[in-house]
């Protein structure tokens, strides 16, 4: 009785029709996504919650797709059970049947994995700096350095970002990420993926002519110089090069605005008198900042299993055909 029901639900004719319906549904979805460009930004993540928050008439194709895929999945499951029984009972074409069974099983697992990832996966975007960012699920992440590697024509070849990670369990990890080389945690469930990385100008260093004392200036942080204090207000790029504006506050409370060229080749424009001392611009200081995407995919083991099973199935298929053809 149960086996008859399985045979009915897993009927191949039904599977074939459902397969074509899914294909048609996906094609309609592609068309709708291309028409409603505001609703569907290009290359957006596989987030199924997006389609339900709020529910919209334009998303009808996706609701229909979930139904057709579910029916397809039920048919596929029943068909798999029936095929497994046939495989046990039959002695002919065992390799071919096993290969087909594995590929269908992989498809079913893939569909399940997409459902789990689609509803329970997460995507966050953020910037990681030297000060560090607390990423839920991963821990405190800091950038140590950023190295941009360029092609001979100046275009970007790769970016390497050194990360220092402190996990919630106290584990400390040093890892370098680059394009196509994310940091992977917890068996692949969590990933930190680079989107871009840059050494942003943080401030600059000035050096005293007399004493050789060096002072590192950072925006809006006052630094004591002799009896007064200096604060970097901001930096600006001009046609003549980069300049910085500073505020000097003397001991008697008077304030003075000062300008310095942020280059060593601007003569007296790259020098600065603070109190009695003359300082020269020495060098810029940088802060490595990496724009990253953090992904959480709870279905990664499921998809890895599907990948393994499908690879075995596909490899097993070929010798069967080779034998038939020769």
């Amino acid at each position: 009785m149960l086996y008859s029901l399985i045979k009915l639900v897993g009927h191949r004719d039904l599977g074939f029709i459902l397969g074509l319906v899914v294909v048609f549904n996906l094609a309609i979805g592609s068309l709708v996504m291309n028409i409603y460009t505001d609703l569907y930004p290009p290359f957006f993540p596989f987030d199924l919650n997006y389609f339900f928050d709020p529910v919209r008439i334009e998303h009808s194709w996706l609701y229909a797709l979930i139904i057709t895929f579910t029916l397809y999945g039920i048919n596929l499951s029943a068909c798999l059970i029936e095929s497994a029984v046939e495989l046990i009972q039959s002695k002919s074409q065992r390799l071919h049947r096993t290969a087909a069974l594995l590929i269908h099983l992989a498809l079913l697992l893939t569909m399940g994995a997409h459902l789990v990832d689609g509803f329970y996966g997460q995507t966050q975007h953020g910037v990681i700096s030297q000060e560090g960012v607390l990423i839920p699920g991963i821990g405190l992440v800091r950038t140590e350095y950023i190295e941009n590697i360029q092609h001979p024509d100046g275009s970007l070849k790769d970016t390497k970002v050194g990360l220092k990670i402190e996990r919630a369990n106290g584990e400390k990890i040093n890892q370098t990420i680059a394009y196509n080389e994310p940091a992977i945690f917890d068996n692949g469930e969590w990933e930190i993926i680079i989107q871009s990385g840059e050494n942003k100008v943080r401030g600059f260093i000035i050096k005293s002519d007399n004493s050789g004392q060096e002072i590192s200036l950072t925006t809006e942080i006052a630094k004591q110089v002799g009896s007064g204090s200096v604060t970097l207000q901001g930096m600006i790029n001009t046609q003549m090069g980069p300049f910085a504006q500073l505020t000097w506050q003397a001991e008697d409370g008077t304030t003075e605005t000062k300008i310095i060229a942020l280059t060593t080749t601007a003569g007296r424009h790259s020098s600065l008198t603070l109190g009695q001392e003359v300082f020269q611009f020495k060098e810029l200081t940088y802060r490595p900042m990496a724009a990253v995407m953090v992904r959480y995919n709870p279905a990664i083991l499921l998809i890895a299993l599907a990948l393994f099973i499908s690879t075995i199935g596909l490899i097993m298929l070929k010798p069967v055909w080779w034998r038939r053809e020769h």
Partner: peptide
Amino acid sequence: YLAWGAYFMWDSKLLWSVILWLYYGNLLH
């Protein structure tokens, strides 16, 4: 997965690749 953290995204090329795979997989039967 390595470059964008996802083996599938809502991109028409990816969608149509799935369409092709399902279509021709279906035709095998």
